[in-house]
Simulated scan of single mutants.
Amino acid sequence: MSKPRAKAPTKSVTVYCNKCRERLLQYKKGGNGSLVKCFIERISKNYTETLGICPNCETQFGRETMIRGVPAIKIIGGKVLVK
């Protein structure tokens, strides 16, 4: 599999916790589908203390993993809201 594009997309989205509506990440998202994974190199602002865990309600919204040889967060379905 190939690596993601080196140039980050221009579209930026804010990721919120679906349970408490706390702001989690500012992410440079490409494409128009749902958010399934977040490449760590594309995260522009991280509002969490521990990556993958909400700082307010301490719900786990994602797991750290390697996707296509690049570190990423695999999002758990229904745990985040993207605006």
Rank of each mutant, 00 (worst) to 15 (best):
N46Q: 02
Q60M: 12
C20M: 04
Q60H: 04
M1V: 13
G77W: 02
I53T: 11
A72W: 04
Y47T: 00
K11N: 15
I76S: 02
I43Q: 02
V70N: 05
Q60I: 07
C17L: 03
V70I: 15
E22M: 07
P9C: 07
I76F: 13
I76P: 02
R21V: 07
L51D: 12
L81R: 09
S34C: 11
I75L: 10
R42P: 05
V36I: 14
E22H: 06
P9F: 06
S2N: 11
S44W: 00
T59S: 11
P4W: 04
T10V: 13
G33Y: 10
K7A: 10
S2Y: 08
L25H: 08
C38N: 08
C57A: 01
L81A: 06
V82G: 00
K45D: 14
I75M: 13
T10S: 15
C57T: 01
T10K: 15
V15F: 05
G31Y: 08
G78R: 06
S12C: 15
T48C: 15
K28A: 14
C20F: 01
K19M: 04
K83M: 13
N18R: 13
R42C: 08
T14S: 05
A6I: 15
C38F: 06
T14Q: 11
R23Y: 00
E49D: 10
K29Y: 06
S44K: 09
K7L: 08
G33M: 10
V82H: 01
C17I: 03
C54F: 05
K7H: 03
E58R: 13
I73S: 04
I76M: 04
V80S: 04
G33Q: 12
K28P: 01
S2V: 12
A6F: 08
V70L: 07
P55F: 05
A72Y: 04
A8L: 15
C38E: 13
E64S: 12
F39W: 11
N46P: 09
T14R: 07
T65C: 13
V80P: 01
N32G: 15
